[in-house]
Nucleic acid binder design. Structure first.
Length: 322
DNA sequence: CGACTTTGACCCGCGC
DNA sequence: GCGCGGGTCAAAGTCG
C-alpha cells in the first residue's frame, strides 16, 4: 500500500476550474489563469505518483508567492505555455499550465512519525552509519517521515529555503533526462531530507519533496515579518516552510531567478501534516487555512473519491462532504 | 582544512 | 526468486 495507492494529481485537483476557484477564494485574487485547463486535458498527476504521494490533502502556499503573491501570480497567466507543448503524457502528464503553480503533497507513509526520533532509532542510525552495509532488521519496515512535495517554477534546482542542505546522492530518474538529487539537512540531529528534481515535461519546474520536520529553526534567516491580506496563507506556508524548509523568498545573489519562482503546494499528508506543521506552532493558522481549502469541495470531492490512504487520514466529516 | 559535491556501489521494497 | 528502481552510503574530488 505504500506505493500503489498514490493519489493522482487529477484526483487531487478534481475539476480544474473548481480547483482554481478554490484557490482564488483562498488567496483573494484570481488564479484562474493558472489552473485554467482546457477541457479534457489531463491535469498533472505523474508527480504525485512520482513522489509517492498519497493520502489526505492540504494546500499551502510557499516560496515567493508567500510574500508577493499578488505580483507574482497574475504574471503567471501570461506566462502559461501552450498546452500543445505537452508531450509524452504517458510518462508524466504534465500540467497543461506547467508553470502555473506548485502542486505539493505530503504523504503519510509514517503515520506515527515524531519529529524527534526515539533514542533507539538514533542509535540505530548511528550504527547504520558506522556499519553501513550491515544487514538490517527484517521485520521492521523502513519508516518514512511525512513528506511534503511541491512544484516550483524556477531555473535553479536547489532553492534557497533558509536551511542548509548537504547533497548526499543523485540518481537518474527513469523516463526523465533530469536527475533527482537528495539532500539532507546539515543540522545535526535534524533528519529532514529533501529530494529535488525537474519536471520531465517542463524543465522550468522544480519538484521538491521534503521529508521529515526540522527540529531547529532556520539557521540562515529569522522568521520574516509578514503582513497584509495574504497573511493567513502566507503564515500557513510559513508554518510548513518552517517545518519542511520550503523555499522562502529572500534576497539572494540571483534575485531574478527567485522572482520567477512560483509555487504553492497541495500537501497530501496524514493527520500530521497540515495541522501539525511547524514545530513551534502556527497550527491555528494552518488550520484556518486548511479550512478554507476544505470547503473548496469540488476539488476535495474528486480527491476523496480516490480512496487509498485518504480515508485513513482525512477526518471523516471531510469525507462525507462529497 | 572544513564543508560540500560527485559518483559508483550497495541495500531494500516491490512487482512479476 | 529475480530484476528493477528508489534511496542511501561513503570515498574521492572540489571549492572557498
Amino acid at each position: 500500500m505504500e506505493r500503489k495507492e498514490g493519489v493522482k494529481m487529477e484526483d487531487v485537483m478534481g475539476n480544474p476550474s473548481s480547483f482554481s476557484d478554490c484557490l482564488s477564494s483562498g488567496f483573494g485574487f484570481p488564479l484562474q489563469s493558472i489552473f485554467d485547463l482546457s477541457e479534457g486535458e489531463k491535469i498533472p498527476l505523474g508527480f504525485m505518483e512520482l513522489l509517492g504521494v498519497q493520502d489526505s490533502l492540504m494546500m499551502t502556499s510557499s516560496s515567493p508567492p508567500l510574500f508577493d503573491m499578488t505580483h507574482q501570480l497574475p504574471s503567471l497567466a501570461t506566462e502559461a505555455p501552450n498546452p500543445s507543448k505537452i508531450e509524452s503524457p504517458e510518462v508524466f502528464n504534465q500540467p497543461a499550465t506547467p508553470n502555473s503553480s506548485s502542486i505539493s503533497s505530503a504523504s503519510s507513509e509514517a503515520v506515527n512519525d515524531e519529529p524527534v526520533k526515539p533514542e533507539e532509532d538514533q542509535e540505530e542510525d548511528q550504527q547504520k552509519t558506522k556499519k553501513q552495509l550491515k544487514p538490517k532488521k527484517t521485520n521492521q519496515k523502513r519508516q518514512r517521515e511525512p513528506r511534503f512535495a511541491f512544484m516550483t517554477k524556477s531555473e535553479v534546482d536547489h532553492l534557497e529555503d533558509g536551511y542548509r542542505w548537504r547533497k548526499y546522492g543523485q540518481k537518474a530518474v527513469k523516463n526523465s533526462p533530469f536527475p533527482r538529487s537528495y539532500y539532507r539537512c546539515t543540522s545535526t540531529s535534524c533528519n529532514v531530507k529533501k529530494r529535488v528534481e525537474r519536471s520531465f515535461n517542463d524543465p522550468t519546474i522544480v519538484v521538491t519533496t521534503y521529508e521529515g520536520q526540522h527540529t531547529h529553526p532556520s539557521p540562515l534567516m529569522p522568521r520574516p515579518t509578514l503582513g497584509g491580506a495574504h497573511l493567513a496563507s502566507a503564515l500557513s506556508a510559513a508554518g510548513a516552510a518552517a517545518t519542511f524548509g520550503l523555499p522562502m523568498q529572500r534576497t539572494t545573489t540571483t534575485p531574478s531567478l527567485y522572482q520567477q519562482q512560483q509555487s504553492f503546494g497541495i500537501g497530501i499528508g496524514n493527520g500530521l501534516s497540515p495541522l501539525n506543521f511547524g514545530h513551534n506552532g502556527s497550527n491555528n493558522i494552518n488550520a484556518s487555512f486548511l479550512n478554507e481549502r476544505r470547503f473548496c469541495t469540488p476539488a476535495g470531492q474528486s480527491l476523496l473519491k480516490d480512496h487509498g490512504l485518504l480515508q485513513d487520514i482525512l477526518p471523516s466529516h471531510m469525507l462525507k462532504e462529497e
